[in-house]
Amino acid sequence: MAKDIKDLGWNELIPGAALFSFSEPVEDVTEVAIDERPYSPTNSHEYSVGDWRVEKPVFNRDYCIDCQFCWVFCPDISIISRDKKMIGVDYEHCKGCGICVEVCPTNPKSLLMFPEHLENEEALAKWPAKEAKK
């Protein structure tokens, strides 16, 4: 789409308000990773809800065991995992619910919530030590 959607007049709209996921055909979407898809400008993937967050999850690679609990339970497809490896958090799509932190089984946790304004480096520097078994 050449024009930005919000600048379209009534006469330029697709009849029936149909929306398309991609801007070109994708024969088998299950074969194409999220980073490689030709998303259409009307795909919500192209938008951000990052500003919904009050706190953000920060990922610490040092403790992660790649169990993928955070990946499967993330409601917002915001845990970036490739080839069975946890890579990080997609801050454009993460709403800061905190489920990933709750389900993280490591000790200390490899995901923790920090204030939104804190830089990730600072957060990693403040990472707590292993908790003693209760």
Partner: peptide, 11 residues
């Protein structure tokens, strides 16, 4: 399972 390419999007 985590190798799945999601068909449901964020935001």
């Amino acid at each position: 399972l985590s190798l799945s390419n999601d068909r449901y999007e964020g935001a």
